[in-house]
Computed example of a mutant assay.
Amino acid sequence: MILIINLMLYFKQSLLIWFYEHDVCLSLAVQRELDERKKFDAFLSFSHKDDDLIEEFVERLENGRQKFRLCFYLRDWLVGESIPECISQSVKDSRRIIILMTNHFLKFT
């Protein structure tokens, strides 16, 4: 019993992710009340040099078994608005932030 408890504590994050992905014990990953009013599940941040990866990434997240509403600049930002303002608003409107951290992204920052 002690071994099982230790393993559960050690792999807590992985177990929670697995539970959430498989719709098991979703109460373990309950969303806070503040998040319920958010327009998007996540804001997607990435380097423009990774556009080839983004299409597949967005497709899998928005149309997979667990469907997510993503915010990303190609369709959700207003043309002519300042980029810092768009980023700020996107973060405010999203429950989470996903950063596609590639070598291109690291060189950009």
Rank of each mutant, 00 (worst) to 15 (best):
I5M: 05
E55N: 14
C71H: 00
D76Y: 03
I83E: 11
L61E: 02
T102G: 10
R69G: 02
L100T: 00
I4Q: 11
H22L: 14
D52V: 15
L28R: 01
R95L: 00
D41F: 04
L9S: 06
L7I: 04
L44P: 00
R37N: 13
R69L: 06
Q31G: 01
S90F: 05
I87C: 07
I54E: 00
I99W: 06
Q13G: 08
F105R: 06
S82C: 08
E55T: 14
F40D: 05
S45F: 08
D76K: 03
D52Y: 13
F108R: 12
W18Y: 15
L100V: 01
R95H: 01
Y20R: 15
E36C: 12
L100I: 01
E59S: 04
D23Y: 13
V91M: 05
M8C: 14
A42K: 07
D23F: 11
H104Q: 09
M1Y: 13
E36K: 15
D51R: 09
D41P: 08
T102R: 08
F11L: 08
W77K: 05
S47R: 04
L34M: 06
R69F: 03
D23H: 14
L34C: 06
A29G: 03
T102D: 12
V58K: 00
I17Q: 05
G64L: 10
Q89E: 10
I98A: 01
I97G: 10
E33F: 05
S94E: 03
E36W: 14
F11K: 14
A42S: 13
E36V: 15
C86N: 12
P84Q: 03
E62V: 05
F105K: 04
Q89A: 08
L44R: 02
L53I: 07
Q89I: 04
V24Q: 03
L16M: 11
R69P: 00
L78N: 10
L34Y: 07
